[in-house]
Design a protein around this nucleic acid. Structure first.
Lengths: 343, 343
DNA sequence: CTGAAAGCGCTTACAG
DNA sequence: CTGAAAGCGCTTACAG
């Protein structure tokens, strides 16, 4: 009874059945007319009538039904550790630009950069939510993706490829994090810095960036100093900077943030302490988010928008007939050091 | 033949049928055990066996099938004009925090702030992609959402409610843009500024903010000066500022960006011209995105994260039994002026 | 209590 | 060429 009352108030979406009934044709005929540019089996007048009625009723195909039947979601997923890190919205924009004209929507899934969040993302993907994925994972490893690969889900992972590719439709896009961090460290040493610290988060790309930093420091006979936090947040960057500043005269003269968000938090902490960047402490970052430019932060540029475009192109191609047969690709992307005023 | 070969390489997802076959029970029994905490009709040993096999096979429910049958997507959509405006990722974080514990995923749909993008979002929603929506629309009006409302889709729109609410399950969350802009304009006048310009985009909240600005300017006997661009981008802000600076000595002494992204672009342009903020030109914005704090931008704070939490709570409640029966609500949110160094 | 059947809204292979 | 039927993978109402 209550249900019936609700029905009266809340109308339901029109279906192909409704259109078919109004047009006096079969439901299948409606499907054909709506989906094919040409339908020789349907008389022109009937076709026009169906189109007109569908439009009048405001018919839109039910996405779940279409997906269930066709096994296509027409959706690409972008799995990121943190939407509020401006690098990722930029990436998403690039994805959308390429995916939209091909008829694909782009969904963003935020893992919070935590292992549990990444496992949730994996389960989410295993439920068939998307036809393709571009993802950044800090904790999950290549074997974790094997199952999805076997199900025929193409993936672009932003990171270095593992030793064993396993013949799955997984492509890797990456920059040489070790070398990029090494180059930035050399730049700082070249400017005369001797006490150089690095701020990083425990997981994700921080490790490889620390590797490059440590190598160059050791080669130069300098002592590496790492401050490790749990997240790539500006709060973490500020916290780390405060602890570095508490060393007084022994404090570093330059600080390398493993990403821009950390570096920006560190800049903030330096200024809050009444000190100047770069006069008292030089600061450099990694990513080149839009804010880096505004703040004059010297950093390593990774082109987010272009990476997004390329990743989407890759997925779209793999989703065409036979696209999954090609072996997994690795694409190394050039980094670039952008010198500004902060160092 | 080719298909058969592919089949051999690409395995398919396990279904409830596969689990049922392996456990020697009906597919329906698998569904019951997997979805209900207690299944009195299924013997304990059988229940355990089903659970074990489902886990071993890595079974995950097919999302489209579940949605089609249950008419629930367990997804909330967040429709935004521009993911790269940091205000929206902040909003999304708030949504996720509240939605995730209730079992809802949050998807982001980017309209690019254009009429066509918003119409695409509307069609997307009409395809039954989400159970609820929180959205910011610059072009679509209340009547455009009537159909979705009749279908029983709860919506939270970020903006002022229209005159005629129409009894639909649409809630509005808004701040008083006119008054907020007026207050900010008064602040600038109080600091002695007389030539105050406003930079805004043609659509969206810019109009009401311009209204408040113009009112206060006129009341003070001052001439309003509006520079209107097509988008709320930092490029637009920089462009507008350049044109203002070209007036030489007649240039404004203060510039009000209708949002922070515009204001930040304007700051950049002032500095690129070799001038100082606030000494040569004072600049204020609107939103209080994270960057505003870093750049010392005086602005109007809208709490993105809290707004997201509240919007999600609202939708989750409306999706509970009877939740749609409540009339549309309006929730006015307090704004706050945050004074920093830019003015 | 127990299990098999109906059906959500589509697409597409297949019989007439 | 034309149309009706099968079936995608689930949930749930309903008959035994």
């Amino acid at each position: 009874m209550l249900r019936a009352m609700r029905k009266a108030i809340v109308s339901s979406r029109p279906t192909q059945r409704d259109v078919a009934a109004a047009a006096g044709v079969s439901q299948a005929a409606v499907s054909m007319v709506l989906n094919k540019a040409e339908t020789p089996s349907v008389p022109g007048a009937t076709r026009q009538r169906i189109l007109k009625i569908a439009s009048d009723l405001g018919y839109q195909p039910h996405h779940a039904a279409r997906t269930l039947r066709s096994a296509r979601t027409m959706t690409l997923a972008c799995v990121v550790p943190d939407v509020t890190n401006p690098f990722y919205p930029g990436l998403v924009r690039g994805l959308q630009k390429t995916a939209a004209p091909e008829g694909y929507d782009v969904l963003i899934y935020d893992t919070d950069g935590q292992a549990e969040g990444e496992r949730r993302a994996l389960r989410w993907l295993q439920q068939g939510r998307a036809d393709g994925v571009v993802g950044t994972f800090f904790h999950l490893q290549a074997p974790d993706f094997e199952e999805l690969g076997r199900y025929g889900l193409p993936m672009v992972l932003l990171g270095p490829p593992p030793k064993d590719r396993g013949g799955l439709p997984i492509d890797y896009m990456f920059i040489d994090n070790v070398e990029a961090a090494a180059a930035m460290t050399r730049l700082l040493i070249g400017k005369g810095h001797r006490r150089i610290a690095m701020i990083l988060a425990e997981f994700g790309p921080g490790r490889r960036r620390a590797l490059g930093y440590e190598q160059v420091m050791r080669e130069a006979g300098l002592e590496p100093q790492l401050v490790v936090d749990r997240t790539f947040s500006s709060e973490a960057g500020a916290r780390a900077m405060q602890s570095l500043l508490s060393a007084g005269d022994a404090r570093p003269t330059a600080v390398f943030g493993a990403n821009d968000v950390l570096a920006i938090g560190a800049m903030q902490a330096v200024r809050d302490a009444g000190l100047s960047v770069p006069d008292d402490v030089a600061i450099v970052g990694f990513d080149d988010v839009p804010t880096a430019n505004l703040l004059g932060l010297t950093t390593v540029r990774q082109p987010d928008f272009e990476l997004g475009e390329l990743a989407a192109r890759n997925l779209v191609d793999r989703l065409k007939p036979g696209g999954l047969d090609a072996p997994g690709r690795s694409l190394e992307w050039k980094f670039e050091i952008v010198e500004r005023l902060s160092a």
